[in-house]
């Protein structure tokens, strides 16, 4: 496997979609390749930073409207 091929398999690797044989070849390559290890670490970091985009407070006016709607739903 070349680095050029390995980088395109990384999402499948992280998701566990590689066949056992491909996974073994992938891991063999990664163990001997600083560049691909760095790339995989970067992809993992990118994934977790993307996850931080989930942190966003509900704006107060929207929250107030939704809670009002909930209360009238509750009492209906």
């Amino acid at each position: 496997m070349t680095c050029r091929e390995v980088v395109e398999l990384m999402t499948d690797y992280l998701d566990g979609f590689l066949s056992p044989a491909d996974r073994a070849r992938f891991e063999d390559h990664i163990h001997g390749c600083d560049g691909c290890r760095a790339y995989l670490a970067q992809l993992r970091t990118a994934r977790s930073l993307i996850g931080r985009a989930a942190d966003e407070p509900v704006p107060e006016p929207l929250k107030a409207e939704l809670m009002n709607a909930f209360r009238s739903w509750k009492s209906s």
Partner: peptide, 10 residues
């Protein structure tokens, strides 16, 4: 097909 400009470690 091997890196010539590998990524930096973060």
């Amino acid at each position: 097909g091997m890196w010539s400009t590998p990524p930096d470690s973060w």
